[in-house]
Simulated scan of single mutants.
Amino acid sequence: MTVIAVPEPLVDQAVDQLRQDLLSGVHGPGTKLKVDMLRAQYGYSSSPLREALNRLTQEGLVAVDQRRGFRVAGMSAEDFADITRLRLFVDLQALEEAMEHGDDEWEVRSVAAFHRLQKVEARFPEGPLVLNAEWSARHKEFHMALLSGTPSPRLMGICSNLFDQAERYRRYSAKYRSQTRSKSDEHKAILEATMQRDKPEAIRLLTAHISRTQTNIADLFEQGVLLESNAI
């Protein structure tokens, strides 16, 4: 029996492409997102593009300006601090629930995601890995796999959305970072503590992991390396 692949709806395709370009900085913070311009760039009609922009507004990656147009969400040290504060609420809650409820499949999923992340890191030993699209995808996959033991799909959705909002800052700041940061040991330690169901250690390690990124990006803003863009 031949299985016919059903194409992804146009709106979902547009959301995926726009989200990736927003995260990677193709459209910089504060940039006006004109539907006509996006039609020429992506080849979609106005209807799926407007729906995609509305969805990305709900995700916090796009903002609606006073003239009812769309812009890329601005960036600021205060905004990233708020994203980090919320991640420390929801990610830690999800991780704790994952250690309570996670089964064998969750463990296999988490270990496999770490292995795939390591394989990518082994191929790209130099430079800011966050700028590599494959590494970024595997990085998110690893973090979401660890949290996926939670029984709450809504909590997972919030964690995923906040991860993407933080990812935009990570990628943007990596372009200006003078020193690379190896995360492999951090991820391995988090994985091991989580698999051992060592709640205090796993929570401590993930807290430090998330907080360190916030500190690094805050320093770049303070130094003027990153410029705030609050245009809406």
Rank of each mutant, 00 (worst) to 15 (best):
A5Q: 13
P7I: 09
E8I: 10
R19C: 09
L23D: 00
G25L: 04
H27C: 08
G28A: 15
L33N: 05
K34C: 05
K34F: 13
K34W: 14
L38C: 02
S46I: 05
S47N: 06
L53M: 06
N54G: 13
R55P: 02
L56T: 03
V64D: 06
Q66Y: 06
F70R: 00
A73F: 01
M75Q: 11
S76W: 01
E78Q: 12
E78W: 03
D79M: 05
I83A: 00
I83M: 00
T84V: 06
F89E: 11
L92Y: 03
A94H: 00
E97Y: 01
G102M: 04
D103Y: 02
D104H: 03
E107S: 02
E107C: 14
R109K: 14
H115A: 13
A122Y: 03
A122M: 10
S136P: 03
E141W: 04
E141C: 00
A145L: 02
L147W: 07
G149T: 06
R154G: 08
F163D: 03
Y169C: 03
Y176T: 08
S182A: 15
S184V: 14
D185G: 14
E186L: 05
A189S: 11
D198W: 03
A202C: 09
R212K: 10
T213P: 00
T213N: 12
D219G: 04
F221C: 08
E222A: 15
E222D: 14
L226D: 01
L227S: 10
I232P: 02
I232W: 08
